[in-house]
Design a protein around this nucleic acid. Structure first.
Lengths: 214, 214
DNA sequence: TCCATAATTCAACAAGCGTTGAAAAAGGAT
DNA sequence: ATCCTTTTTCAACGCTTGTTGAATTATGGA
């Protein structure tokens, strides 16, 4: 019947997103894919290798897009670049709740093998983000004195938080379906963030999408 | 030798903070307390009951303080109230990394018995925070149109994030010992947040502590 | 000192985990 | 059909987990 490794990865992604890296059991992944757990070991070295494969699909394209964005010749404003960076994280990682929770959880817990690999892979993304922020500081678009790392942490951690929590909270708390609440939360967050870090917080942000869209 | 349940709770707190609710094993807690795992069942009904006991110690005082703060007769500005609210979460929950990760993790995962109890306990805290935000909106201190729940989520989730991540990142990324990096990050975050949500973002915030303190 | 009760440990359970080696099934070429 | 190789399943190992009932030790009052 020849199982496509793709199917296994898709199943794994589903389970990782629900349960996180440690919470996702091979048996659950196998159940999701409709096969025996041991079959996974025929196609992948082990569970972490599956996760690494999923990251490998997502991180390089994200890094490439971020590098493009950080190019100083790109004439867009720092505001628009940061907004776009946030959207890039959304489009590349929105289905990787397992990834997000792991990055966060494992960083707090200590250094193991996977986060180290992860840190290496994500370093270029971090550098690209820093380049954008430093350029914004030099050009006077960002308030002087802000620590670039804190700026990046604020923007991206909250975006991850929104991706995780808003779909759950939306219906019961805001009374909105997630597909409307998510763009609203992201837009609101970026406005708050940008006013917070900008030298001229009251300048309009014409690149933001219309919040009144149906 | 009569083991004080207090000692068990302290040991549990340590392990919960390191490993989270699911990651913390009874055997690890028992090791930390220097006793047999089964002894825990003599003093507590089960693991979740231990966790609930820890919450029981912390949430009511937090709620009481927040209620005081939300009192409309308290003449302080909305900015100072929100800053104080953030500090209250810090002082009451800074040692409860397990609590923070659980609230976040379990909310995403779905509703089980403990989070439901938790939601009930935290509802008054949520209402007090909402009261502060709505009062700020009425008085024109907060930008009109902001969703109160998003405002609260932004402020407190990032505070939790800072408590979790800054102690880890401080040394290696910002080059500071945590005891200096943490106040800096909190202060910076609140400035960003307040400029983001305030009607007059450029007004000074005289109640903030001096960032240049030794 | 004896004894009832409280406090603690021991040993084991069932369940779930990641993983493995061998057995079974399926597929393709001759 | 046969043979070889690729793919899949079965059964099990060793480990950790939460939990429990019985056995053991400590404690305090008569």
């Amino acid at each position: 019947m020849k199982m496509d490794p793709r199917t296994l990865l898709d199943a794994a992604l589903k389970v990782f997103a629900r349960e996180g890296l440690e919470g996702a059991s091979l048996r659950a992944i196998a159940r999701e894919a409709g096969c025996d757990p041991s079959l996974i070991y025929y196609h992948f070295e082990n569970k972490e290798a599956m996760f690494a494969a999923l990251l490998e699909e997502r991180i390089p394209p994200l890094v490439a897009d971020l590098r493009h964005l950080a190019n100083p010749l790109d004439p867009r404003s720092t505001a628009e670049k940061l907004w776009t960076a946030m959207q890039l994280f959304h489009t590349h990682l929105h289905d990787s709740a397992g990834f997000r929770s792991m990055v966060r959880g494992q960083i707090v817990r200590g250094v193991e093998t996977l986060p180290e690999l992860l840190a290496k892979k994500l370093l270029p993304a971090n550098l690209a983000m820093q380049a954008i922020v430093r350029r914004g500081l030099r050009r006077g678009e960002l308030r002087p004195g802000l620590h670039p790392l804190l700026v990046i942490m604020f923007l991206l951690r909250m975006e991850a938080e929104i991706l995780d929590l808003v779909p759950v909270f939306a219906q019961r708390a805001v009374g909105m379906p997630p597909e409307r609440a998510l763009p609203l939360a992201e837009r609101t967050w970026f406005e708050v963030f940008w006013r917070g870090v900008a030298t001229r917080p009251l300048d309009p942000l014409p690149f933001l999408p219309d919040p009144e869209l149906p």
